[in-house]
Simulated scan of single mutants.
Amino acid sequence: MTAAKEVAAELGTALRDFLGGYATPVVPVEDGERVWSRLCGELGLAGLLVPESRGGLGFGAAELVAVAAELGRAVVGGPFVPGAVAAATALSAVGTPRSDELLEGIAAGSPLPTLVHVPFASGRRVAASTAADGALTLTGTVGPVLAVPPPCPVLVPADVAGSPVLALVAPDAPGATLTPLPSLDLSRPAWRAGFHETPATVLADGVTAAEAIRRAEIATCIALGAECVGVAGHALELTVDHAKTRHQFGRPIGAFQALAHTLADLTVTVEVARSAAAYVTRCGGDERSTHTLAVKASEAAVTVTTEAIQLHGGIGFTWEYPAHVLLRRAHSAAVLAGTPDQHRRALFALVDER
C-alpha cells in the first residue's frame, strides 16, 4: 500500500469512528454545522486541499475520495464541497497574494469562502463590467450557492467581454442578495446569488481564471462522486441488515430468491462505483477518471437508495429511518455533479482526442 493510500485509509477510519458516535447511522440535520465545526477543529478538514505552504494538509485525490465518501455515508451537512473543496482548489490555482491570504484563512479556521456552483459543462457565468478606473461590478443571478450561515466571501465565475474572470464578493457587498432555494437534501441548504452592480475584486482573469474554475469543477465532481459511493454503500448495508432481520412466512426476507438476486445486483453496482473511486485515486484525479466516477457513482447511489426504499417497505419512508435521507443525498449529489449523460459525452470527447 502506498503512503497516500495509507493516509487516505487512516483518514477514512478516523472519520468513521468519529461519526459512529451517533445513535442513528446518519448525522441529524440540526447537528450538521456543529459536527462540521468539530471536524475542522479536530481533524483539520477545512484545510484538506490547502497546500502545506499555506498552513493546510496539502492532500490530493486519494484523501479527498476517502473523506468525501465518509461524509456522504453519514450525510453530513456543512460547507465541505463548496468551501473546502471547490473554493480551496480554485484559490490554489490562482497563486496571488490575495488568494494565498484566503487559503491561509481557510487552514486557520476562518469562515470558508464558497464557490458559486456552476452546473457541469454549462459554461454559465455572471455578467461583469469594468469601469474606467478598473473597478469590477457584477450583475445577474447564479446558483445554487451551497453554503451555510454565517455569510462568507463568495467566489463567482464571471464574464468580462467574453473573457472568464474569477471574482471575489464580500459577504456585505451592496447589491448582493442570497435567496433561499428549496432543497431536496435538507442537510445541504442552497441559495440563489443575485448581483446588481455589486462591487467585486478580480482574483484571476483569462487563462488563469479558466484553469482555476476547471480545477474546481473537477474537484467538485470527485467529491460529489465519492459522496455517492458512500451513500450507495451505506444504503446497501442497511438493506442487507434489514433483509436478515425482517421475517415473513417464518423466514428472513433475504432468503427469498427474488430479494437475494436483487441484493446481489446491488452489491455489484456498489462495487463498480467503488472501483471507479479507486481509479480516480490511482490516476490522481485526472479528467477521464473523474468523469468515470461521476457516471458510475451517481447511477449507483440513485439505483441503490431507490431499491433500498422499496425493500424496506413502509419503514423506509419514515423520518425516523435513514433510508430516505440517503435517497435525498443521492439525488442531490447526482444532480450537482452533472448528469451521467453529460459526463459520458465529456468522456467520449476525451477518448476521441486520442
Rank of each mutant, 00 (worst) to 15 (best):
E6C: 00
E10W: 00
L11C: 03
A14C: 07
R16Q: 10
G21A: 06
Y22W: 14
A23P: 01
A23K: 13
T24K: 11
E30S: 05
D31P: 00
R38I: 11
R38H: 08
G41Q: 10
E42A: 09
A46I: 08
G47Q: 03
L49H: 06
E52N: 03
A62T: 02
L64N: 03
L64W: 07
L71C: 04
A74L: 03
F80P: 01
V81H: 02
P82T: 06
A86F: 12
L91C: 05
L91E: 02
L102A: 03
L103A: 03
I106W: 01
A107L: 08
A108D: 08
V116L: 15
F120W: 15
S122W: 12
G123N: 04
R125V: 00
A127N: 01
S129Q: 13
T139V: 13
T139A: 02
V142C: 06
G143L: 05
P144T: 00
V145E: 01
V145N: 02
V145I: 06
A147K: 07
P150M: 06
P153T: 00
L155Q: 03
V156I: 14
A158G: 04
V160S: 01
G162M: 13
G162N: 08
A170H: 08
A170V: 10
P174Q: 03
G175A: 06
L178Q: 09
L178F: 12
L181V: 12
P182M: 05
L184V: 14
L186I: 09
S187L: 00
R188W: 12
E197A: 14
A210N: 03
A210V: 12
A210W: 05
E211Y: 04
A212W: 14
R215W: 11
I218P: 03
T220Y: 08
A223C: 05
E227K: 08
L238F: 09
H242R: 15
K244S: 09
R246Y: 13
Q248K: 14
G250W: 10
R251W: 14
A258F: 15
A260D: 11
H261Q: 11
H261K: 15
D265R: 15
V268E: 09
T269Q: 06
V272T: 15
A277P: 04
A278M: 03
R282D: 10
C283W: 13
C283I: 00
T292F: 01
L293W: 11
A301N: 02
V302F: 02
T303G: 00
T303N: 07
E307T: 07
L311E: 10
G316Q: 08
F317N: 01
T318G: 05
T318C: 07
W319C: 14
E320W: 12
A323S: 11
V325C: 05
V325L: 14
A334N: 02
L336S: 00
A337I: 14
G338T: 10
G338S: 04
D341W: 11
D341M: 13
R345H: 10
L347C: 01
E353H: 13
